[in-house]
Computed example of a mutant assay.
Amino acid sequence: MRLLSEHLAEAVALVTPLAVETVPLLQGMNRVLARDVIATLDGPSFDNSAMDGYAVRVADAVAGSVLPVAADIPAGSGLPAPLAVGTAARIMTGAPVPAGADAIVPVEQTDGALETVRIDVAPMPGAHIRRRGEDVTAGDVVVAAGVQLGSWQLSGAASAGVATVDVRRAPRIAVLTTGDELVDPGTVPGPGQIVDSNSTLLAAMVLGVGGVPVVLPRAGDTPESVLASLDGVEADLIVTAGGASVGAYDPVKAALSDRGVTFHAVAMQPGKPQGLGVYRGIPIACLPGNPVSVAVTFQVVVGAMLRAMLQAPEPIMTSAVASVGWHSPHGRTQFVPAVVDPNGTVRPATVRGSQSHLVASLAKGRVLAVVPADVDEVLPGDTVGFMMSHLEILA
């Protein structure tokens, strides 16, 4: 049986980094950043008020004092005149703080008057003033290369004066499912038929990593059908599901074994039967057919290939205490779709363990628990490592 580490090394070696392109911020959503985002301006770009209230000099604003209101400073106004000694300026949130003022008194701590204002609570120096550059300074790295961009990162880039981002080209990933027994979702299965959930699963996982799914026509259980579905495919990576094992009707293995793809028994559960290679110049990963195996092998194996293509870092592993126990096959790394309970403990998403056909249980899973190959059993109270869901395999 092939070591998982050996299999992953071969998978990564099949692919090369994708090209870099510059896109407007919103088009960067879910894409992987190729170059650091560098701030072009300070944030904030000027001292401004964090509250609606009054700009004052601390020395003047003792509790009970009454100060003439010398100016109104709304947000969006230009640079205000300096604050005269012994006066206050009514100021709105986000408005520039006048020179000379060293605190903001919130309106709730005053009588809220317009011509003169009574200060009910003396402010501390610097109170409620957002200082220029306290969040970011021009030249700082706002988002580091390798991050998959989300709404928070794009917002940070925008606030730092950046309008475009340099990202890796979105990978085009062709997905192919096989099986005469498969019918489309929404179809009532006949005798011996099952619903094709793998096409939806693979396409959704591709979208989750910022890729473009190319869903190929579903193939039947003959090598000729597989080759017909692959005919003319254009993609950065091909992923197949099903037909890669040792059965009498494993059409992917029969079709591709002499066309640049090698099939292995990999020391992982689920996902033992897999293939890797290059088909007509395109890297290809052949996954098992059971849906949980598809989900796991995509996350573990295809995920490694995508990180190499996108130059993204390895996913963050964390750990939790197991609330229940379960068995693990000796000599194979086990991956279990799991739930993290409100108390922070982790348990399998299904009471029936890591059986690869239990696709409906994937809907409950939020993490993928990882049991090392030398562990035969997880006991309640054991610490279990896990990685995040398929939507976060790039970071």
Rank of each mutant, 00 (worst) to 15 (best):
L3T: 11
L4M: 06
S5F: 00
S5Q: 08
H7S: 08
L14C: 10
L18C: 07
E21I: 14
V23R: 07
P24H: 05
L26D: 13
M29W: 08
R31G: 13
L33F: 01
R35V: 15
R35C: 09
I38L: 08
T40P: 03
G43W: 07
F46M: 13
S49M: 09
A50C: 08
M51I: 05
V56M: 04
V58Y: 00
V58G: 00
D60N: 11
A63I: 11
V66M: 03
V66K: 02
L67F: 01
L67N: 02
V69S: 03
P74V: 11
P74D: 06
A75L: 10
G76A: 03
G78M: 02
P80H: 12
T87K: 03
M92P: 00
A95S: 10
P96S: 12
V97G: 06
P98C: 10
A99M: 07
A101D: 10
P106C: 05
V107T: 13
E108G: 09
T116I: 11
R118Q: 14
A127N: 09
R130E: 15
A144G: 05
A144D: 09
A145F: 00
G146M: 07
V147H: 03
Q148T: 08
W152I: 15
L154P: 03
A158I: 12
A160L: 06
G161I: 12
V162E: 04
A163E: 15
V167H: 01
R168L: 08
R168K: 06
R169C: 12
I173Y: 00
E181V: 14
E181M: 11
V183F: 00
P185Y: 02
P189G: 07
G190N: 09
G192R: 00
N198A: 04
T200M: 04
L201H: 02
A203I: 12
V212D: 11
L216F: 02
P217T: 12
P223D: 12
P223I: 14
A228G: 07
D231F: 08
V233Q: 03
A235V: 14
A244T: 15
S245I: 09
V246P: 02
G247C: 05
A254S: 11
L256Q: 10
G260A: 08
V261Q: 01
A267M: 04
P270L: 02
K272W: 01
P273G: 10
G281R: 07
I282V: 15
P283C: 11
L287Y: 02
P288F: 03
A295S: 12
A295N: 06
V296L: 06
M305V: 06
P313D: 09
S319H: 07
S323D: 12
H330F: 11
G331H: 05
R332F: 05
T333Y: 01
Q334K: 02
D341R: 11
P342M: 12
N343R: 04
A349Q: 07
T350H: 08
G353P: 13
A360V: 13
R366V: 15
V367I: 15
L368G: 06
V370N: 01
V375K: 04
L379H: 13
M388R: 07
M388F: 08
S389N: 14
I393D: 05
